[in-house]
């Protein structure tokens, strides 16, 4: 990421250098005994930290307006601190005023831009949250994120279910869990390589994300199996959504890397709902188990139908 920002870093380094050269040109070095080391430590430390923040920000962020503001702000704070530090080593003649200007000017300007940057960062984060909402639902754990699809994995699914299920015990509405399995997925891996397979999974996950509601959560269960939590959803709606997803996938013309070839797929979906009978409350495991069973049945049904058709 840093190489996209090399001009910004170059600008900061140049400014600091210019300040140093200009200071040395107009003033004399202090004697060793005159230097207040406590001040050096605190002012130097502040400048160094501002620099560390700048590098971290530049390292983790793509270019754009927010990054521009943040880096301008932190650069200003750094330059102010740096000039302050130079003061500790260099005695400026009274006639020279510009060093004060750098010190007192850069700081408020820097703080202004930093504030502006953080404000826009906040706005940006809100809009990213809105996008991530269907993937993470109010709880963030970057370690559980799946490498292929950027969805959370089965661990996260179990955690979410364990958290959500008690709420549903008292509510009248059920929670639905859908397990979505791509039919003949291994054919893709076999014929086109596993990178193509990974890409297909990623595309399918985006596709499914588009067709679910704000409060639903999509996870990657394992392999080519996705899990979809539908809170406050009865059987009718759950099955409607399942058939919608199934139709969506059937009409999705997936393009392979190498040829202008379109591949069409189908999915089998297993639906499980929390039991309304409060004497046998569902655990995450039992719900997943039932959804897995329903999925096996759906696959079997599909196979029978295919055989009859053929």
């Amino acid at each position: 990421m840093l190489k996209h920002h090399k001009w910004k870093l170059f600008f900061v380094a140049m400014s600091a250098n210019l300040a140093l050269i200009a200071s040395l040109a107009v003033a004399d070095l202090k004697l060793l005994a005159e230097i207040n080391w406590l001040d050096v430590l605190s002012e130097g430390g502040a400048a160094a930290l501002a620099l560390v923040w700048l590098v971290l920000i530049l390292h983790s962020r793509p270019t754009g307006r927010v990054t521009q503001y943040l880096s301008l702000g932190l650069s200003g704070i750094f330059l102010a601190g740096f000039q302050d530090l130079l003061d500790e080593f260099i005695r400026f003649p009274d006639a020279v005023q510009w060093d004060h200007w750098i010190e007192s000017g850069c700081m408020p300007i820097g703080l202004y831009f930093l504030t502006l940057g953080i404000y826009h960062w906040h706005k940006e984060q809100l809009s990213i949250n809105a996008q991530l909402r269907k993937r993470e639902r109010l709880f963030r754990e970057h370690r559980s994120m799946d490498f292929t699809t950027n969805l959370s994995g089965a661990d996260y699914l179990r955690k979410q279910l364990t958290q959500t299920l008690p709420e549903h015990r008292h509510a009248t509405n059920t929670l639905a869990l859908l397990l979505i399995d791509v039919d003949n997925f291994n054919e893709i891996n076999r014929c086109y390589g596993h990178q193509q397979g990974d890409h297909l999974l990623q595309s399918l996950s985006e596709l499914i994300l588009l067709s679910i509601r704000r409060n639903d959560l999509l996870c990657r269960y394992a392999g080519d199996r996705f899990a979809l939590i539908l809170p406050n959803t009865g059987r009718v709606v759950a099955e409607k959504m399942a058939s919608e997803i199934s139709m969506l996938v059937q009409h999705f013309a997936y393009k392979t890397f190498t040829q202008d070839e379109s591949l069409f797929h189908s999915v089998s979906i297993g639906v499980a709902l929390t039991s309304i009978d409060s004497s046998t409350p569902d655990s995450a495991e039992s719900l997943i188990e039932r959804a897995n069973l329903a999925l096996l049945h759906a696959k079997e049904k599909r196979r029978m139908a295919m055989q009859q058709a053929a």
Partner: peptide
């Protein structure tokens, strides 16, 4: 194991 989902699927 904890990652029982892999056995389920594969």
């Amino acid at each position: 194991p904890d990652y029982i989902e892999q056995y389920d699927v594969h």
